[in-house]
Nucleic acid binder design. Structure first.
Length: 723
DNA sequence: CTAGGGTTAG
């Protein structure tokens, strides 16, 4: 018999074959010389999968009779088949096959003993299924057989625990490993990166290099997502180049994501543009990268470019697009509906993640009605879904609806700590103090969830808004964990509402230490001082801000009128109708003053005369946008504006009166929530029958440049030209 | 015969 037809050597040829053609040749040889040998079927299936032909592997495996089980004669052939299932992503089958040998149905193969080769594939399958219970059970099986010291088994365990989010369990295995190779380190780094412990992952990578272990492609793919700042990104990038991994598509995709995450979007885009071959992950990563950097228009434009090239998006791609649309300042409800339609037409709305993202989209675009409709039609809901809908009600000031939904939820599933953030923030938006306390206390007493900083921040906000500043401060002092900037930020915000400079200073001192680059807090403190007539102190804060190089965020408001988006700055005079706007504004201010509106000059600049203050208040971007909207929209239609920062207190009050005297519903979205004004009561967004044409935008920094057919493929010749 | 991979809603 020629060496290549001997069982042993033919098997090893199969396992090392590098091309489909050579594998098929070996497949034929196996069939001729060893028909119906199970080992060959299994080895061939594994190899087909690993070479990227899972369908061939699946059809081969489907020829096997699974019940009654294939007639194994040796553990060896059993292991091969187990691995074939695992390699082919047929993890359920792998687990079920294993359970016939050990576990749930022992004794099916009494003559077979599992060995060290049995465990790695089946443990890996538990990881892919995120089935930690099965993983732990099989871990114990391996322990019982005295196999846990085995390198490959330990590596598989680290991987499995990492996939299941059990970081501590992974560490426990990793720490006691008798010997480690590059796979062990890589699995542990991947575990940390996947579970939000990026710094630790990066540190472990450095430690690995110090230990003289040479990283490979898989290591890079795991450590690149760990980089969080420009320095780490540059380090890894030069490492990639030095080791020649820069031509690998997966590595390139990871790098695009990394540079975007590390605030080097321009670099990410350069990298993306230079990629000779792009796959869906490349497009998704770049779109998502723009989203992470609040460059939503760029994200939407890139999506359009992608479609123009005929690339068909998947659910991950549209997720980035949905998010960009949800968060963009220059996007509207019509736009959301267009994207929703796109998702449906392309059958991408079938999965839980997409549906939840759509709920979030409608909440953020102002329509609780649409959001709730999708929510109600969902067949399954995750904790994220519940939390999105609950905080959606909260954002719109509908605290009671939020709590009602939560009560429904808790009869069905066990809430997690993030759902409680949604519940508590809904209480704070609606001023439901007693309920807030009750839910806050129930976290520990009923659910055993330790409150995090965000929960404390909600409670401080709730107490602070109600004017219970002292109580809020004592609450912070009694916290069993260190308060973070969100907690002190809530207190500072409350100090602004209730004009308390003493507590504000205490809060600000902590804030400037914990989060020195957040410009809003400096502005807040300085405003508190100046509205109390403490000009000197206010100037000191401004000086501090300058010294630290913190840039103030300019406030602006956008409004959509007839498919164009207009952006207003304070005292904006750049609009074609600007002079009319100011005339109308003055008339309107007089009108609402007769109704009882009193300008609150607390919110004006403070080193000027009362009358000047009043005039500067009237020039706030919110008011300009509303007047512009009133001038350019049909009577009775809803005015919607969107401000990048929190809406100013005087504008909030003025809007109430404007809504009343003009009998117009006004919806204000700011950086935190929605404010609904209708007659002077808060209302829900009504379900409009009005259809507006789709508007998409140019990323022009100015305003009013919004071709309405932007999204439609083929209409923008300039962009086609680029390719 | 063992092994590792990128994008994913609050």
């Amino acid at each position: 018999m020629a060496p290549s037809t001997n069982v042993r050597s033919l098997l090893s040829l199969i396992q090392t074959s590098a091309s489909l053609l050579s594998l098929q040749t070996l497949h034929a040889a196996a069939l001729r010389h060893h028909p119906s040998n199970l080992s060959f079927t299994a080895a061939l299936a594994s190899r087909y999968s690993l070479l990227g032909f899972p369908h061939l592997s699946h059809s081969l495996l489907s020829t096997l009779p699974f019940t009654p089980l294939p007639p194994f004669t040796t553990t060896f052939s059993f292991n091969l088949l187990l691995r074939a299932y695992s390699d082919s992503n047929l993890h359920d089958q792998a687990l079920s096959l294993y359970s016939h040998l050990l576990g749930s149905s022992p004794g099916t193969y009494p003559q077979l003993e599992p060995d060290r080769f049995t465990f790695p594939p089946v443990i890996k399958s538990c990881g892919y299924l995120c089935d930690v219970e099965a993983g732990v059970r099989i871990h114990k099986d391996a322990e019982r057989l005295g196999l846990v010291g085995d390198l490959a088994i330990s590596n598989a365990l680290v991987f499995m625990y990492g996939k299941c989010g059990e970081v501590d369990a992974a560490w426990k295995v990793f720490d006691v490993m008798f010997e480690r190779n590059v796979v062990s380190w890589t699995a542990m780094i991947g575990c940390l990166g996947r579970n939000g412990k990026r710094e630790e992952g990066f540190q472990l990578f450095k430690k690995m290099v110090e230990h003289g272990v040479r990283p490979n492609r898989a290591t890079l793919l795991n450590v690149i997502p760990c980089a969080v700042n420009g320095e780490e990104a540059d380090d890894l990038y030069s490492f990639v180049i030095r080791n020649g991994f820069q031509f690998d598509l997966a590595v390139q995709n990871a790098l695009v994501g990394m540079f975007a995450r590390c605030r080097k979007v321009g670099f990410a885009r350069q990298m993306f543009d230079r990629m000779p071959v792009k796959d869906l992950v490349s497009w998704s990563s770049m779109i998502e990268g723009y989203g992470q950097n609040a460059m939503y228009l760029e994200a939407l434009e890139l999506f359009r470019d992608m479609r123009m090239l005929g690339v068909q998006p998947d659910s991950v791609t549209v997720l980035g697009v949905i998010r960009a649309c949800a968060n963009s300042m220059l996007s509207c409800l019509a736009h959301a509906r267009f994207i929703h339609g796109f998702v449906i037409r392309n059958f991408l709305d079938k999965n839980l993640v997409s549906q939840t993202a759509l709920v979030d989209l409608y909440v953020k675009r102002g329509s609780l009605t649409y959001a709730r409709r999708i929510f109600d039609r969902m067949e399954e809901r995750s904790l994220v879904t519940w939390s999105t809908m609950i905080s959606g009600y909260g954002m719109h000031g509908r605290g009671t609806d939020a709590l009602y939904l939560f009560e429904t939820m808790r009869t069905l599933v066990r809430p997690d700590h993030i759902v409680f953030v949604s519940v508590l923030s809904a209480c704070s938006h609606a001023g439901l103090i007693d309920e807030g306390w009750r839910y806050f206390n129930s976290m520990t007493s009923e659910y055993g969830i330790m409150p995090h900083s965000e929960h404390y921040a909600c409670m401080v906000d709730l107490l602070g808004r109600a004017g219970k500043l002292q109580e809020a401060k004592e609450f912070i002092e009694k916290m069993p964990i260190n308060p973070d900037s969100s907690v002190w930020g809530s207190l500072l915000g409350a100090c602004r509402i209730h004009q308390n400079a003493k507590l504000a200073e205490i809060a600000a001192k902590e804030l400037f230490r914990l989060d020195p680059t957040n410009s809003g807090r400096y502005v807040l403190l300085s405003n508190i001082f100046s509205s109390l007539g403490k000009g000197k102190e206010a100037d000191k804060v401004k000086g501090l801000m300058r010294r630290k190089g913190v840039k103030r965020n300019d406030g602006f408001t956008v409004i959509e009128v007839k498919n164009r988006v207009y952006k207003f700055l304070v005292g904006d005079k750049t609009k074609p109708q600007s002079s009319q706007i100011y005339v109308e504004l003055e008339k309107l201010m007089d009108r609402i003053k007769r109704e009882g509106y009193v300008p609150d000059t607390n919110f004006a600049l403070h080193d000027v005369e009362e009358e000047t203050k009043e005039r500067s208040l009237a020039m706030h971007s919110e008011k300009l946008a509303i007047v512009f909207g009133l001038m350019n929209s049909a009577p009775g239609s809803v005015i919607r504006i969107h401000k990048n920062l929190r809406v100013c207190g005087d504008c909030h009050n003025a809007t109430k009166y404007i809504s009343k005297v003009t009998k117009r519903e006004i919806v204000v979205r700011d950086s935190h929530r929605f404010h609904h004004f209708k007659d002077d009561q808060q209302t829900e967004y009504p379900q409009g029958k009005k259809t507006c044409k789709l508007a998409l935008y140019s990323s022009s920094q100015t305003d009013q440049v919004i071709p309405s057919n932007h999204m439609q493929v083929g209409l923008n010749k300039k962009l086609i030209h680029r390719y």
